[in-house]
Structure formats: structure tokens, C-alpha cells
Amino acid sequence: MKIFILLFFLFLSSSSYSYSYFRIPIEGLSLSSESFRRYATPQLRSMVNEYFLVMKKVSPESAKILSLRKYALSINSKSESITLECRDFNSKCSNQLKSIKKEIVNFEKSIFKEIEDVKITSVQIDDQIEYLRLLKDLAVKISSLSHSIEEYSLLKDSELERYSKNMYDISDGTNEALFLLNLKINTLMPSHLRPEFEKVWKGFVLPIEQNVLRKNDKEFLLSHLERFNIDWNSFHKNITKGNFDLPKSKTLYSDIIHNRWNQILKIILRK
């Protein structure tokens, strides 16, 4: 049965515009740790990055949200690393903390610059108001985070440390900022395209980034393979062959992602 599925898949993938919605049985799926590390993970990371390029091609305005999200993702990753690795504070941890503080300052500056630059016009006014609301919510969270990390830096290793915020509080704060940006990432996407981008973001890109790449979870990829396959193929078909009339130049990276995904499926289903 599995051989039949693989042959069927190879037949479908002979065209760059094939869409493989066939049933993928979870039972018996396998991917060696070596193949996951050396092939699947780099391909998936490239796919996530290329998806953001798709967003920027289709909606250049989205680059602003993606830039802010890059700050939030980096700060969140570093704060989680300190929380896990720096129970006994040392010089390495101190340098990591300084790095986070510097990024938070830059993040805060970027947010306030964006707030100053927002211009409410009669075109897509609701989206612009929603974007301004996102920026103000982020400003509140990052200002609080900046205060917390400054307080922690001043009071750590002192008798007052127990009264200050700690790295767990700071890590939670970075999680909240990242969650907000993940939730509102498609705010500046054209309204007629937003539902397609929302579905593939929530069903494919974000779960892969958070669970497969950040947690290095091979089993999550295998157990959700069929759902991922359906969600990606649906998006790619609609965005390239649907009724949106997008020029090829705007969907080029979607084709690249599609080819990468098909190659990953081949690796998993080849046995």
C-alpha cells in the first residue's frame, strides 16, 4: 500500500503545479534522525523564510510587521536560553543579558518610529487603525519588559533580588509580545488575500516554526504530515491558480516552497 502511495505521489509531483491531497497514513511513517537533521530541518527552515518573502512580495507593507517580529523572536529565544541555562549567573549569562537589553532598546525604538510613521488614509483605513493598535499594544508590553529587565539587572545578587522581576517573568513578557505579533501578522495583507494567508500561517508555517524547528520535534512533523500537506497544497493552489490574478513574480517563492515540500514528502514516503 505504501509503495502504491509513493508511486502515486511521484506521478503527481512530475508537474510543478501538482497538488497531492491523497491520504497519508500516520502508521509506519519514518524519518531517520540523520535525515531529519541534515535534510528536513534545513529545508523546512528555508521554507519558513521563503514564506515571509511571499508575504512581502504580495504585500510589501507586511515587511514592517515581519521586521518587528524578527526582534521579538530573537529576544524571546535569548530569554528562554538564559532561563534554561543560567540558574547560576556567570559572565557568559551577564553578556547574554546585556545583549537582550540592547535588543529590547532597539525594538522599542523601532516600535515608536513605526507609530510616528503611521499615516491614516482613506484607503484600507480599518487595517491601518488595526496596525496602529498593534503597535501601541506592543509599545506597552515592551516598555514593561524594558523596565523588568532593568530592575532585574540592578537587583540581581543583592538582598533585594527576591522583590524584583526574574528571568521567568522576562521570558513570559517576550512570549506575550511574540504571541501578539503572531496573532496580527496578516494585519497589512490585502483583505481579499488575508483568509488564505491566515489559514496557511496557522495550519502550516507557524506550527512548523514553533514545534518542528524551535523544539526540534521530528515526531510532530510526522504526526501532522497529512494536515500540513493539505493546508500547504490548498494555499499554493489558490494563490497560484486561483482567482486572485497575482503575477508570477509575486508567487515565485511559493513555487520554490512547494518543490521543497514535495522533496520532504518523498524522503519520508520513499520506504
Rank of each mutant, 00 (worst) to 15 (best):
E108A: 08
S110V: 05
S110T: 13
F112V: 04
F112L: 14
K113P: 03
K113M: 04
E114A: 08
I115V: 11
I115Y: 03
E116L: 10
D117N: 15
D117P: 09
D117T: 09
V118R: 07
K119V: 09
I120C: 12
I120W: 05
T121P: 07
S122V: 14
Q124D: 15
I125T: 14
Q128H: 08
I129Y: 11
I129D: 06
Y131L: 10
L132H: 04
L138P: 01
L138K: 05
A139C: 08
K141D: 15
I142N: 04
S143K: 03
L145W: 05
S146Q: 12
S146C: 12
S146R: 03
H147A: 15
H147W: 14
S148E: 11
I149F: 08
E151Y: 06
E151N: 11
Y152S: 10
Y152A: 07
Y152L: 09
Y152T: 02
S153D: 13
S153E: 13
L154S: 11
L154M: 13
L154H: 13
D157E: 13
S158E: 14
E159R: 09
L160C: 12
E161L: 05
Y163A: 10
Y163I: 12
S164D: 02
S164I: 06
K165F: 13
K165Y: 04
N166L: 01
N166V: 06
N166A: 02
M167S: 05
Y168C: 07
Y168M: 10
D169M: 04
S171D: 01
S171F: 02
D172A: 13
D172K: 08
D172S: 07
G173T: 02
T174Q: 00
T174F: 01
T174L: 12
N175I: 05
E176K: 05
E176L: 14
E176I: 01
A177T: 08
F179G: 14
L180G: 10
L181H: 04
N182F: 09
K184H: 06
K184P: 04
N186Q: 13
N186K: 03
N186Y: 01
T187V: 06
L188G: 03
P190Y: 00
P190V: 00
H192D: 13
L193D: 02
R194K: 10
R194F: 03
P195K: 13
P195M: 15
P195S: 10
P195I: 06
E196D: 09
E196Y: 10
E196G: 00
F197Y: 11
E198N: 14
K199S: 12
V200T: 06
V205P: 02
L206S: 02
P207E: 08
I208D: 00
I208V: 11
E209Q: 10
E209M: 06
Q210G: 11
N211M: 04
N211E: 07
K215H: 07
N216V: 09
D217E: 01
D217K: 05
